[in-house]
Design a binder for these strands. Structure first.
Length: 191
DNA sequence: CGCCTTTGACCGGCGC
DNA sequence: GCGCCGGTCAAAGGCG
């Protein structure tokens, strides 16, 4: 993979390297950074100055599932809601659309290492976008957290990462691959 | 050898 | 019902 030293965060409050490993906490403690349904239905169009994320989403109209996140944000902390979706649920039950949390990052690299181990399980072309979207799943056993990464055609320096679910386990790359992390952090901070 | 990508097929939901 | 679309599966191959 090409590793370029550029890594900016478009968000004002989340520093790059930290954002990765802190994404979980960030979601918890700073709901205004999270993409919740509340926000979605509250602000259809105008609003919250969400870093223009919303408008970007509208531009690439492809994340249509975003619009279907009109369920409860309560299932937020559960992360189990995933399993319900895929596992056999009774026919009476409605599908639970888990909340997703998207944030965009200005980066040359698609692979933003957030400390978890991800296995890619799909890649699809995105309409109105020349770049494909990649689907990843957390490889930790029993952890069904997913994320998808996509780049904007409009501004190919921007990478949108959408997380789905919550990790119910600690970050795997700790002491084991710590050198790896250090290497990457050096890359990210080498400016 | 184990873990990961790649890639086309497949599936379920939705609009027509 | 049909076709499109977003999302997922799984076989095959790559790589350290």
């Amino acid at each position: 993979m090409e590793t370029y030293p550029t890594f900016y965060s478009s968000s004002s409050t989340t520093p790059p390297a930290a954002a990765s490993s802190l994404s979980l906490n960030m979601v918890n403690s700073h709901p205004h950074h999270a993409y919740s349904n509340d926000q979605y239905q509250a602000s259809n169009n105008k609003s919250n100055g969400f870093l223009g994320l919303m408008s970007e989403m509208e531009v690439s109209n492809s994340i249509n599932s975003m619009s279907s996140i009109s369920q409860s944000m309560k299932s937020f902390g559960e992360g189990e809601s995933n399993t319900a979706v895929r596992a056999g649920m009774k026919k009476g039950e409605k599908k639970i659309r888990k909340p997703r949390y998207a944030f965009q990052t200005r980066s040359q690299v698609d692979i933003l290492d957030d400390g978890y181990r991800w296995r890619k399980y799909g890649q699809k072309a995105v309409k109105n976008n020349k770049f494909p979207r990649s689907y990843y799943r957390c490889t930790h056993q029993g952890c069904n957290v997913k994320k998808q990464v996509q780049r904007l055609t409009k501004d190919e320096g921007v990478v949108v990462t959408t997380y789905e679910g919550m990790h119910s386990h600690p970050i795997e790359k700790s002491t084991d691959n710590f050198e790896h992390i250090l290497t990457q952090m050096q890359i990210y901070t080498s400016f």
